[in-house]
Design a binder for these strands. Structure first.
Lengths: 141, 141
DNA sequence: CCCTGCAGTTAGACAGAGTCCAATTCCTGT
DNA sequence: ACAGGAATTGGACTCTGTCTAACTGCAGGG
């Protein structure tokens, strides 16, 4: 599976979500989807501009918000300082290592949650986030 | 139950958590515990300085972080822009109205979660956060 | 009663994430 | 080649939160 192949897939993926696949958008999508990690905006900008500065901060944010809007990626809010962007849009939850800041996926399929109250009238669920905060056993509390 | 009574309780509460109850700390504790809501740092500062400016930004943040440290309050991270401080330290989860930004408690007692994977070796759980994101049914998607 | 010392508070400078805007560049269709 | 809309850009700006160095105020000892 060549890089070219990945990129062509990416362009199709963007189009499938109604996004015009420009050069910068492909770069950013590639950063997110090639390594399947949770990245923050500044990490993405660093990756995209590794060789030589090609993409501005404004574009990175524009693009990420566009991707969010078109439901190509998800936003994970666990750290008060920054948002993580998650290329995995299948139902899943997260485990957050508070020491290292590392974020791991938890498949939602086997998870069952019961005993939740019913929603207030006129409200609908957008989604449910579960974050398990963990730390190394020897980490100074 | 007079205001005085509430305040004396508060002072005791702070002392019980190893916090020296100064004037500013009591003001901030009162803002959080009298109305049992989820407030952000700037909301707290606005409340405390309603009459005349008495408490600086630095003190508000110092105090909130001190309260967090001493486990008098909890931090709720649902909004990318700001942290909410939660005076309710009993086990509970949250419902977040993405339109209004309003945050409501969900008692943890009746809730059961099963099917979670086991923790990686050497890791311990700090806690589990569940956030149900809701919106009005007629809210423009 | 006045020192001394320390905990708490303060203003303001600073840092980092994210937004906004006006100007420019890039495409695409003709 | 050209016009027009979409995308991108740098830079200024806002906002949340932190840091620092100076200041305040109180408690305990002489």
């Amino acid at each position: 599976m060549s890089l070219k192949y990945i990129r062509e897939n990416l362009a199709g993926k963007l189009r499938a979500h109604g996004i015009n696949p420009t050069h910068q958008r492909l770069e950013i999508a590639h950063a997110l989807f090639s390594r399947c990690e949770h990245l923050s905006a500044d990490q993405i900008m660093a990756i995209v501009n590794e060789r030589h500065s090609e993409t501005s901060k404004a574009t990175v944010y524009n693009t990420l918000n566009l991707f969010l809007d078109k439901k190509l990626i998800r936003e994970v809010i666990v750290d008060p300082n920054k948002v993580f962007y998650d290329p995995n849009t299948s139902p899943h939850y997260h485990m957050y290592d508070v020491e290292s800041g590392r974020l791991t996926d938890i498949d939602a399929a086997p998870v069952r949650v019961s005993g939740l109250p019913s929603l207030p009238a006129g409200m609908v669920t957008e989604g449910m986030d579960i974050v398990i905060r963990v730390r190394p056993a020897d980490f100074p509390h």
